[in-house]
Design a protein around this nucleic acid. Structure first.
Length: 316
DNA sequence: AACGCATACAACCGCGAGATT
DNA sequence: CAATCTCGCGGTTGTATGCGT
């Protein structure tokens, strides 16, 4: 009882596009556009291709103003930062990089950036062996990055924009790493529909580090104690901003495995994990102060009805 | 020169969400 | 309100090219 195929697979060409096909598609698109229907487009354009294939070819290769070639350092920085915050949401990441496609960025990440970053992360995760250079390099990429933000959270941003330490937030994304410098506490917004938001705080040498392992919103979410290969372990992310925060507060939407939140102490011999306590919405509002995080902001960030009180808050 | 492996990137596939019927 | 359709997304695969031996 599978889904009906989008086209007659027997009569469509697959594989690489020829220059002639490219020309046909390009000319058709420039004259007519999609007409709101990719499925019907191949017939109209005289192409023996599946509509999906046409769409992909156009979006990833033929459409105007696409950038090809090397990614700049700025683009690297943005990809790093966004992947750190939201994971592999390539379309959202692409929306922050004009001229780049999600496919481009995905390929670039998988083939180059991931290795570059994992090298940095693996060396930094052995925090005791961290060099000063490593501590400085990665956070400095992100330190002053302020992404675009929507009006719903502008209050927060404006309140803190002038203060050192703000890492920024992203348009329409409610999982923004975020630091409240007042009273030296640090708040991180986590939250994804299916759960999978993990955050931990580890302390090995007296300093505090945040490990924010942003999982995927699926039932296969990995456990924070077992960081998923390829996921972002930004030990240094906050560490580079301020090592002296006193509190870690994680705000997250309903669902998921918030109860698995923990912080850990690591010594040469062992790692001791400590469960995080859960606090309710009202409590966190008292802790943080509604001038910093107002109801609307919370609701917008979490996209839930406050009355349902589904938000859970971890407070360390 | 030939081979095999690694890399880069284009393209495909299945699925979920939202729109439409 | 259910069934169907289309779009868009993210994971994966396929293929061309580069590089080392």
């Amino acid at each position: 009882m599978g889904r009906a195929p989008c086209c007659d697979k027997a009569n469509v060409k697959k594989g690489p596009w020829s220059p002639e096909e490219d020309t046909k598609l390009k000319e058709y698109m420039e004259k007519h556009g999609t007409g709101g229907n990719w499925i019907a487009l191949p017939n109209k354009a005289g192409l023996k291709r599946c509509g999906k294939s046409c769409r992909l070819r156009w979006l990833n290769y033929l459409r105007p103003n696409l950038k090809h070639g090397e990614f700049s350092d700025d683009e690297d920085r943005i990809i790093y930062g966004l992947y750190a915050s939201i994971g592999s949401r390539w379309s959202i990441i692409a929306s922050q990089l004009p001229g780049r496609t999600d496919n481009d960025i995905k390929n670039y990440w998988n083939t180059k950036l991931k290795k570059k970053f994992m090298g940095m992360a693996s060396s930094s995760s052995s925090s005791h062996r961290k060099t000063q250079q490593q501590q400085l390099t990665f956070p400095s990429l992100l330190h002053n990055t302020i992404y675009s933000y929507d009006n719903n959270i502008s209050t927060i941003i404006h309140h803190h924009q002038s203060q050192k330490g703000i890492l920024g937030t992203m348009n329409n994304i409610h999982h923004s790493p975020y630091r409240v410098s007042q009273d030296n506490s640090l708040i991180m917004f986590g939250g994804a529909g299916g759960g999978g938001d993990q955050a931990s705080c580890s302390s090995s040498d007296g300093s505090k580090e945040i490990e924010y392992d942003y999982g995927r919103s699926s039932s296969s979410d990995h456990h924070p104690q077992q960081p998923q290969t390829g996921s972002f372990q930004n030990y240094n992310y906050f560490n580079g901003v301020d090592e002296n925060f006193q509190k870690l507060i994680v705000l997250s939407s309903a669902g998921g495995n918030l109860s698995s939140g923990f912080w850990s102490e690591t010594t040469a011999n062992a790692t001791t994990q400590h469960q995080l306590d859960l606090y309710g919405l009202e409590e966190i509002k008292q802790l943080v102060g509604t001038s910093n995080v107002c109801n609307n902001n919370l609701n917008n960030l979490f996209n839930v009805d406050e009355d349902k009180a589904e938000e859970k808050v971890m407070y360390y």
